[in-house]
Design a protein around this nucleic acid. Structure first.
Lengths: 194, 194
DNA sequence: GACTACCTAACAAACGTTCAGTAGGTTCAT
DNA sequence: ATGAACCTACTGAACGTTTGTTAGGTAGTC
């Protein structure tokens, strides 16, 4: 792994943990065992480093769901598999997920456009087609968003949900959450089309 | 309004916008037209100020839903009213909402406990009782979480959702979102209990 | 005379960024 | 084959600025 890649890999973790202004160039340099000037050799300034870090973190992430779309089975099974995969990604790559949360807080219009029309576009379209199959007479955009929303919320708010009454240990298991979300949505689809 | 309240009110807005490390004491002092030392007269240090700001922002917020619980009508109508109120609060008080998002990112265990067992406890319990009425044989904690999750996601991810194909202007109207969430959930309840 | 609410001015530390220099490899005319 | 020129990847030290925090003083109230 090159020094540049080492810097970016560490930057993903540290920006995710501390945020943009919470991470200093010196802290990052210390983490990758390089001088501050070495970082400036690879990146013009902190802002450019952050942008490239986000881009680097979001690469690869698209093809995680390829196996879901290529798999055989009913639409119901595909939805279940998608939700399971989504939760797995978020659990297994918490730094990517936290970086995404921070991006949503900033909600820079240009970068939102990049995500919505670029990186995540294909996945969202495939998801919309799937829910259209399951509930043809409903608003596909709203339903696809609901799939993502339920999945993301259960992960992001787990630390809070734990402290609410009625919480059980299985509530933080990805497979359990995924099953709940899947049945919730499939039940709703059935009721509407009936 | 006292100087201390003025400081806290401005701090809610600025911490929400810039985050803890993004806001300096000097910027805050400038915003409230006081010297930095004046802030230190009211708060021992920056961290204590932040904690009190969060506490201040979360005060009041409990009683917003009182009218929902005290209102008459079926459980279905109450759920609808709760979701509408929830979305209204989040839209009308974006600074509070952003501060909450930042708190979830940090997810300090002590403060999560404070929120889950203190501030939001009553509301979550009332919501659980409501969904128990609507779907007695399902996991009330999961369903109550789903209500909150769907509502929060549609607000938090609006800037991204806008850039996905299939988006329509009505998708950012609170009333429209609330109706979608309500029918989605009520349909799911019906299917399961049938 | 004590107390509250504030001020100006300063502190050391940390910040982003830059500059001059070096060690090691490649290129290339001689 | 060799030495000059050049490039890349880095270092240490410094720059001016901003940071959180504090010390000491003042004006008004009780």
């Amino acid at each position: 792994m090159s020094s540049k890649e080492k810097i970016l890999t560490a930057a993903i973790i540290l920006f995710a943990q501390k945020g943009y202004s919470g991470l200093s160039m010196r802290q990052l340099a210390l983490a990758v065992d390089l001088s501050v000037a070495a970082i400036y050799h690879h990146f013009p300034d902190k802002n450019a480093l952050y942008l490239e870090t986000v881009r680097y973190a979001f690469a690869d992430k698209e093809q995680v769901f390829d196996q879901v779309w290529q798999s055989k089975g009913s639409a119901e099974e595909k939805l279940s598999r998608f939700i399971h995969s989504l939760l797995d990604v978020m659990i297994n790559d918490p730094n990517f997920h936290r970086l995404m949360q921070r991006e949503m807080l900033e909600a820079n219009p240009e970068r939102m456009q990049l995500l919505g029309q670029g990186v995540f576009n294909t996945q969202f379209c495939l998801l919309m087609e799937l829910v259209k199959e399951l509930a043809p007479d409903q608003d596909a955009h709203l339903l696809a968003s609901s799939v993502l929303g339920l999945s993301k919320y259960f992960i992001e708010y787990q630390p809070l949900l734990k402290n609410f009454p009625g919480w059980k240990p299985e509530h933080e298991m990805p497979a359990f959450i995924a099953t709940h979300i899947t049945t919730l949505l499939l039940n709703s689809f059935k009721a509407k089309t009936a």
